Amino acid sequence: MTNPLAGLFTARQKESARRDLYARGVLLCGAYLAAHDSRLTQAIGTLTTALDTPAADPFDALLKVGERALETGEHTLALGIAETSTEIRQRSKGAWRLRARALDGLGRDDEAMESYERHLTLLGDGEPADEVTRGIDTLRRRRACLAEASTLFPGDGTPVTAPEFAAHVRARVAEHGPADPAVRRLLRLYATHRRLVERSGMPDPLLGGTTPIGVGGLRALLNGRTVCLVSNAAEVAGSGLGAEIDGYDLVVRCDTFRINKGGTGERTDLHAVSLRGATPWDGPAWTQPAGVRLVFGDPAGAWRRAARQRLTAGAQEHTGDASLRRPLSDPALLGEDRWGTKAGTAFTVLRLLDFLDVSPRLDLIGFDKPGRLRPEEAEWVMDRATHVDDSKMRIALR
């Protein structure tokens, strides 16, 4: 006779196991907070709130904690979160990607490769995989360095591994001297390996024909053209303004955006992004098609590394060069330090376009509500507005 309570009992067992796994993630976060005070706090707080809200799904909040951990260089914490996430949802693409990146950061190359490949198998047709394939390519090139290094002095008898690579190089230099041809080759391999540890390799350094553009080139591109800066607010997506937005000569969007033909329009002629966090190069690749991609960031080293790792071949025709990386504070451009390092992307690109002053029409769409810009940024905009059309969420600066 079938036990009518068996299914209910099994379901409760599964739910209990899932709660235990979520609890493990919270315990990892709690242990971290006990010893640190960092920018992870907000993400961990969001996760804790989600766990206490019956209608909320805490899984995305858990992954966000892992991503924030990667941004701050806390790879061990990120791996713990990733391992918990892959146990909760074994077919989660985001969880396996997080696991691969954490293992990569810890130098556990073989395990990272397995996790990257697991992520790729879960991707659907047409889903972007540039960042993951670049990570796999980098791991393979690092492996090749170690494999060749192991063959240069076959008498050693043990393969060269990443943790012992530096010690192996020092020992061979001391034993054979720097003039030895095998030692010189070993030094070149070590230098290549270190570069690939510090930053991912670029399968296409020319980015599919992307050309750099400076201040003069951007001014020429804008000259005489009408421009609109479109907010990522949900109201715009449902506004029905798509045809009007696409009617401008140049459409500007910021950071992560979604296209809804009827509301947001379809074109992206200029895409502006700002680098955030301690390790901005670890963010997702910029795959949205755009005519020009401007990347704002400081210091210069972090900006170069992030641009190198996150720009995608063929995703843009032009990319801003170093002269456009910090337009607000750069004394060669605006030189306005009062906006600080936390200026929003939308305001940064708007202030740049206004400063260049070659567009006969410069409008903002969807920035009419509080919170879309910082208070001091909104005040600057409204002080210079020539017209406000609430029915179309439009603020005109020309």
Rank of each mutant, 00 (worst) to 15 (best):
M1N: 12
M1W: 04
N3Q: 03
L21V: 15
G30W: 11
T46H: 12
L51W: 12
D52N: 13
L62A: 07
A69I: 11
H75N: 15
T84W: 10
I88P: 00
Q90M: 12
R91Q: 11
G94P: 06
W96P: 07
L106I: 09
E111I: 03
S115Q: 03
H119M: 09
D125P: 02
E127K: 12
A129Y: 03
A129S: 09
V132G: 04
G135A: 12
G135S: 13
D137L: 11
L139H: 11
R142W: 02
C145A: 08
E148L: 13
V160T: 11
A162L: 15
E164K: 14
V169K: 06
V169C: 07
P178S: 14
P181V: 14
A182V: 10
R185P: 05
H193P: 04
E198Y: 05
P212T: 08
G214M: 06
G216R: 09
R219S: 10
A234W: 11
V236H: 01
S239P: 00
I245G: 00
C254L: 06
R258A: 13
I259N: 01
R267D: 05
L270G: 01
V273A: 12
G291M: 03
V292E: 01
P299N: 04
A307L: 12
A307Y: 02
A313N: 07
E317G: 10
H318Y: 12
H318M: 10
D330P: 01
E336S: 04
W339I: 01
W339C: 05
T345W: 07
A346Y: 10
F355E: 10
S359I: 04
P360V: 01
P360M: 03
D363L: 03
L364G: 01
D368Y: 02
G371R: 09
R372I: 00
L373Y: 06
R374V: 06
R374C: 00
E377N: 07
M382W: 15
R384F: 03
H387I: 07
V388L: 12
K392L: 05
K392N: 09
R394K: 09
A396K: 04
